[in-house]
Design a protein around this nucleic acid. Structure first.
Lengths: 154, 154
DNA sequence: TATTGTTATACTCTATAACTATA
DNA sequence: TATAGTTATAGAGTATAACAATA
């Protein structure tokens, strides 16, 4: 008998392991494109258009000084550029450079590919159920904290 | 009408957001006990008993030198202790101190509490389905990579 | 005064390369 | 020779506190 003897993961343990797995995949994908996970996350966050520093600190849950450093390094690598805000001379908006746009798209798509592969073994039905269960958890969290868009990746 | 108009998350996006949420919760719980996430993870990994450095590098996916530093700092804080391996004089085993055991348990339980709360809104049935869907994904990953126990948290 | 962002400083975390000691 | 672990070094990521400029 070589049956897989599932140890029947506890629910929370299953969640934690899944999160670590996704995190690993994210790190691997970032590394493939010579990005740190934080840089990859920043790029993914900027795909839809320039974002201000303050909004980024909320999305990334970083102190503003930490974000300054992250943006500094990304800018030095030519991935993003600071553009002045036309309505508030104190503020600036962070935009992707063509290079950053390219890498951001690669990272995002690479992530999607990997996760699709990982979930490929799941029957369609179970997959949908997983999707809606997750949506339920995210909704619960949103309701509790009031953050309409937690970190998210785009 | 204030209906929640779910944007119908894509499957992979749902996974990524869930992972970030769990990661945030983990960071918050660690911080509550004045631990870095890495220290908390280390403590959780040692709850079942002492573990050797080499095994820890695999569990945490770190280079050995990175682990040396992590253990150094945890040891300096009195959370863990290096004990000599009785069968191999090159090797050592990392064990929790009473303080580390206490904090590890608090972090682990705090994590479980938070995630339970988060999933409290899910109907029993959906929760079970989520658990088994995750088990399926983890099994797929295990089958692909051959790692019997990815990172995991205990 | 409050907000936006940067600078200065100090840690933690991580990796690569070279090293020591034991197997 | 190979393995277990440490040391040296460098860079990324993060936070706190103090600051400058604008609102």
């Amino acid at each position: 008998m070589v049956t897989t003897k599932e140890p029947v993961l506890g629910f929370t343990e299953a969640l934690v392991r899944l999160a670590h797995l996704v995190q690993q995949v994210f790190e691997d994908v970032a590394k493939e494109h010579d990005l740190t996970p934080q840089q990859a996350q920043l790029l993914c966050l900027l795909i839809d258009g320039p974002v201000g520093m303050t909004e980024l600190t909320r999305a990334l849950r970083l102190e503003k000084s930490s974000l300054t450093g992250l943006v500094d390094r990304a800018e030095k690598r030519g991935l993003v550029a600071r553009t002045r805000d036309s309505h508030d001379r104190r503020a600036c908006r962070i935009a992707l450079t063509p290079d950053g746009e390219r890498l951001g798209a690669l990272a995002h798509d690479g992530m999607a590919d990997r996760l699709e592969t990982l979930a490929a073994g799941l029957p369609r039905e179970q997959r949908d159920l997983l999707g809606s269960a997750i949506a339920g958890i995210l909704a619960e969290h949103t309701a509790t904290t009031g953050h309409p868009r937690p970190p998210a990746d785009r």
